[in-house]
Amino acid sequence: MVACTALAFIGMAAAILERDPFDKLISLSVMIGGIFPFIVDRGYLDVVTATALIAPLSTIFILMVCRRQQA
């Protein structure tokens, strides 16, 4: 749990401090990976299953804007 806390805070600090949008998305993925074990720890397994399946959709929607701005 201490390791997951460290993971969430490292990802948050890196996601704020990065400049490139792809690096920000990668750091955001690190932060989400640190947050998920807390939801499992409370015992909400159905919530974890649903959230893990619909969270990448948000990233893919942002990636559409990234490709549109770079092209």
Binding site: M12, A15, I16, P21, K24, L28, M31, S58, V65
Partner: peptide
């Protein structure tokens, strides 16, 4: 774009 990514946090 940066504001939208920061809004996820």
């Amino acid at each position: 774009l940066v504001q939208l990514i920061n809004l996820e946090i």
